Lab assay of single mutants.
Amino acid sequence: TETYETTDETEARKIAEELKRRGLTFRIERHGTTIRIESD
């Protein structure tokens, strides 16, 4: 499991693209301005 936290929408998108490219599944949670991406 890898966890990323960012407040930057663009960075979050880049992380999501990278995880997809590596064939990982992940979920995105939003907590206020923080975007949390957690891979399975």
Rank of each mutant, 00 (worst) to 15 (best):
T1N: 10
T1Y: 13
T1A: 11
T1S: 11
T1W: 13
T1M: 11
T1R: 14
T1V: 12
T1G: 11
E2L: 14
E2D: 06
E2W: 15
T3R: 11
T3H: 09
T3W: 14
T3V: 15
T3G: 04
T3L: 11
T3P: 03
T3K: 09
Y4F: 07
Y4I: 03
Y4C: 04
Y4R: 02
Y4H: 03
Y4M: 02
Y4K: 01
E5W: 13
E5K: 03
E5L: 10
E5F: 12
E5R: 03
E5M: 08
T6I: 05
T6F: 07
T6N: 01
T6L: 06
T6Y: 03
T6P: 02
T6Q: 01
T7P: 03
T7Q: 11
T7L: 06
T7F: 06
T7D: 12
T7N: 10
D8K: 03
D8R: 03
D8E: 04
D8W: 03
D8Q: 03
D8T: 04
E9P: 13
E9Q: 06
E9H: 06
E9L: 10
E9A: 09
E9G: 04
T10R: 10
T10V: 12
T10Y: 10
T10M: 11
T10H: 12
T10Q: 12
E11F: 07
E11P: 01
E11H: 07
E11T: 09
A12D: 00
A12G: 03
A12K: 01
A12M: 05
A12S: 03
R13V: 09
R13S: 10
R13L: 13
R13I: 11
R13N: 09
K14N: 09
K14C: 15
K14W: 08
K14P: 01
K14V: 08
K14M: 12
K14E: 09
K14L: 12
K14Q: 12
K14D: 07
K14F: 08
I15H: 04
I15W: 08
I15R: 03
I15A: 01
I15K: 04
I15N: 01
I15F: 08
A16R: 04
A16W: 09
A16F: 07
A16I: 15
A16S: 07
A16M: 15
E17H: 08
E17W: 10
E17D: 11
E17L: 11
E17K: 08
E17P: 00
E17N: 09
E17F: 08
E18V: 06
E18P: 00
E18S: 11
E18M: 13
E18N: 09
L19N: 01
L19T: 00
L19M: 06
L19A: 01
K20D: 05
K20L: 12
K20V: 11
K20I: 12
R21I: 06
R21Y: 04
R21S: 08
R21C: 08
R21K: 11
R21Q: 07
R22C: 14
R22E: 02
R22F: 03
R22Q: 06
R22N: 04
R22A: 05
G23D: 04
G23T: 00
G23K: 04
G23L: 02
L24T: 03
L24G: 02
L24M: 07
L24I: 13
L24P: 06
L24N: 03
L24Y: 08
L24W: 04
T25G: 12
T25I: 10
T25Q: 12
T25K: 14
T25H: 15
T25C: 15
F26N: 06
F26A: 12
F26G: 07
F26E: 15
R27F: 14
R27K: 11
R27A: 05
R27H: 14
R27E: 12
R27Y: 13
R27M: 07
R27V: 13
I28Q: 03
I28K: 02
I28T: 06
E29D: 06
E29W: 12
E29C: 15
E29V: 14
E29N: 06
E29P: 00
R30Y: 14
R30Q: 08
R30H: 09
R30E: 05
R30M: 12
R30N: 05
R30W: 13
R30F: 13
H31W: 10
H31E: 09
H31R: 10
H31A: 06
H31D: 12
H31Q: 10
G32D: 04
G32R: 02
G32E: 04
G32V: 01
G32A: 03
G32L: 03
G32S: 02
T33D: 13
T33A: 13
T33Y: 06
T33P: 09
T33E: 12
T33H: 08
T33R: 10
T33I: 11
T34Y: 08
T34M: 12
T34I: 14
I35R: 00
I35H: 01
I35D: 00
I35F: 06
I35T: 02
I35W: 12
I35G: 00
I35Y: 07
I35E: 00
R36Q: 03
R36G: 01
R36A: 02
R36M: 06
R36C: 10
I37R: 00
I37V: 04
I37F: 04
I37H: 00
I37E: 00
I37S: 00
I37A: 00
I37W: 01
E38I: 15
E38K: 12
E38R: 12
E38G: 03
E38N: 07
S39A: 14
S39C: 15
S39V: 15
S39H: 07
S39E: 04
S39Y: 14
D40Q: 13
D40F: 14
D40E: 11
D40S: 12
D40W: 15
D40M: 14
